[in-house]
């Protein structure tokens, strides 16, 4: 590792959790709230990763991705879309077709998602084929087994090869923080991923509990900050799994803004991996516009 000293900076659990909790004490009201909610919508990777996913399901989701606010809100906030949809490789082509002409990207999970417990060649083929199918972004999983065995080199080398297999596609590296134990390991894994060529680092597959938490995301943001200071490279961040409410999303944005500053407040460098979040953002925006608390019955579920 080139930045060994940075990698080995320890993380204190209690302090990092206290700091993360502090962000949740920020009170985001009125104009700041609307601005934050819209930004959050534009940062969503609208996701479906189910065995029961069908072309129909994905087409419906893509419709939502193009117009996440619904007609009423879209009138006052034109042009807002989510950042990407995130699907299994089999559904990349459908998504691509459905999103034609929009700015919404297609992300796909690959490398034997979610466990990654397949031979490396299989995982690399997975990536190559998914890119060929048209994916703009690849969400890979790291080799947690190797990481926990202390075999950092294997983890690193595999990411390098996946990156190569990605070609032009953007690479998000999933650490699966719910499986790798301490915050120290999260920090180490973040550095391995960033040094190996990740464009984004991502918390979770969504298939393991706990998924994204504020403290875990903070540790990753702080790793991104140290990496930026050391190299000048801006790495993106994607918390995924478990973020369902607007309130949580706003907390994450507060944390992002106060940790990495203005330059990261863009879908180019921050994404929410979520399925239900967009609806809640929509409802909160409607609340801000109308002053009424909203009912789910009035918002499409896709």
């Amino acid at each position: 590792m080139r930045h060994q000293r940075l990698v080995e900076t320890p993380v204190d659990q209690i302090n990092v959790e206290e700091r993360a909790a502090r962000f949740t004490k920020r009170s985001i009201k009125t104009t700041s709230k609307v601005e934050g909610l819209l930004l959050a919508v534009s940062m969503c990777d609208l996701t479906t990763l189910e065995g029961k996913d069908t072309e129909g399901k994905v087409r419906q989701m893509c419709q939502k991705a193009r117009n996440p606010l619904g007609a009423d809100l879209a009138a006052s906030h034109p042009g807002v879309t989510v950042a990407a949809v995130c699907v299994y490789p089999n559904l990349v082509e459908v998504a691509k077709r459905s999103l034609k002409g929009s700015q919404v990207k297609v992300a796909a999970v690959a490398t034997g998602f979610p466990s990654g417990q397949y031979p490396l060649e299989v995982r690399l083929d997975d990536v190559r084929q998914t890119v060929e199918l048209g994916a703009d972004e690849i969400d890979m999983v790291i080799n947690r087994g190797a990481l926990l065995e202390g075999d950092i080199k294997t983890v690193f080398d595999e990411i390098v090869q996946v990156k190569e297999a990605c070609g032009e596609a953007h690479l998000k590296v999933i650490l699966e923080t719910g499986e790798i134990g301490s915050y120290d390991t999260v920090r180490r894994a973040s550095f391995v991923a960033m040094e190996a060529g990740a464009d984004f680092i991502k918390t979770s597959t969504g298939k393991v509990q706990p998924a994204a938490t504020m403290p875990v995301a903070l540790v990753m943001l702080e790793a991104i900050r140290d990496f930026y200071y050391a190299t000048g490279k801006r790495i993106g961040m994607k918390p995924a799994g478990g973020i369902r409410t607007s309130k949580e999303a706003l907390h994450y944005l507060v944390m992002l803004s106060e940790t990495l500053g203005d330059d990261w407040m863009t879908p180019d460098l921050f994404r929410f991996g979520a399925s239900a979040l967009v609806n809640d953002l929509q409802m909160q925006l409607a609340k801000q516009a109308t002053g009424r608390y909203q009912s789910g019955d009035y918002f499409s579920l896709d």
Binding site: D12, I14, E17, Y183
Partner: peptide
């Protein structure tokens, strides 16, 4: 009297 605080975490 000296009092010492330390976080309990991993």
């Amino acid at each position: 009297t000296k009092t010492v605080w330390h976080p309990v975490g991993v």
